[in-house]
């Protein structure tokens, strides 16, 4: 565990806490894409199959369980909670996310480390995570105005990706045999998707203005 990875995990955790806080405190999920949340739930379930077979550390196990449970709880709230579901921007959240699942799975069948169920699900989860933010970014772009908590949620998610890239650079120079190609290329793609959002986030922060994305 290095400082970049810890910072990445913590900002990832922060993003989830900010999202839970927004939903709990405001009883609203406006501006949040259910499609993206469903994709994250699939990502965590597919990747953390190893919870059943491997043990790395208590930290690793606890974080995995937290990510799985929180992502399922968020999806459940947005779909079934009586007050929260009414605030869902259904008509703006029309990204066809099934294509992302299908595409990621096909990619995993082609590019994987070993042709085993676990390796293919692992690669699938990496590819899917790289593009899972797309429905969220499209929704934000369409709604134009972004409330503070939603902006911070996406900011922390982007920060998490940035820290993970620093972590891979660090591991590349400090560890032998660090197998990284699938994760690194997907991670770079994922981080690049946030670039546009970050530009407008910092602009609004610099000008002390409300975050607005151009149409």
């Amino acid at each position: 565990m290095n400082i970049f990875r810890l910072a990445g995990d913590m900002t990832h955790l922060m993003s989830i806490l900010v999202l839970l806080l927004k939903i709990y405190a405001t009883k609203s999920c406006s501006g949040i894409s259910l499609k993206t949340q469903e994709l994250y739930a699939v990502v965590f379930l597919a990747r953390y199959l190893d919870l059943l077979t491997d043990f790395f550390s208590l930290y690793n196990t606890v974080m995995k369980v937290v990510f799985i449970v929180s992502s399922l709880a968020i999806v459940w709230c947005m779909r079934y909670h009586r007050a929260v579901r009414r605030t869902y921007d259904r008509e703006l959240d029309t990204f066809r996310h099934y294509f992302l699942i299908l595409g990621s799975f096909v990619l995993a069948l082609i590019f994987h480390e070993k042709f085993t169920v676990r390796e293919i699900f692992w690669a699938f989860s990496i590819y899917l995570e790289a593009v899972a933010i797309l429905p969220q970014l499209v929704l934000l772009q369409r709604s134009g105005n972004v409330d503070n908590l939603t902006g911070q949620y996406v900011f922390f998610l982007g920060a998490y990706r940035g820290f993970y890239i620093l972590n891979w650079i660090y591991r590349y120079f400090t560890e032998a045999h660090f197998g990284r190609w699938i994760a690194s290329i997907s991670g770079l793609v994922q981080t690049a998707l946030y670039a546009d959002f970050f530009y407008y986030y910092f602009l609004s922060w610099k000008n002390n203005a409300k975050l607005k994305l151009p149409a």
């Binding site: 690793n60 974080m63 891979w168 032998a176 045999h177």
Partner: peptide, 10 residues
Amino acid sequence: AEPSSVKDEL
């Protein structure tokens, strides 16, 4: 020891 792997990440 096992070679280090990106799979020990979250």
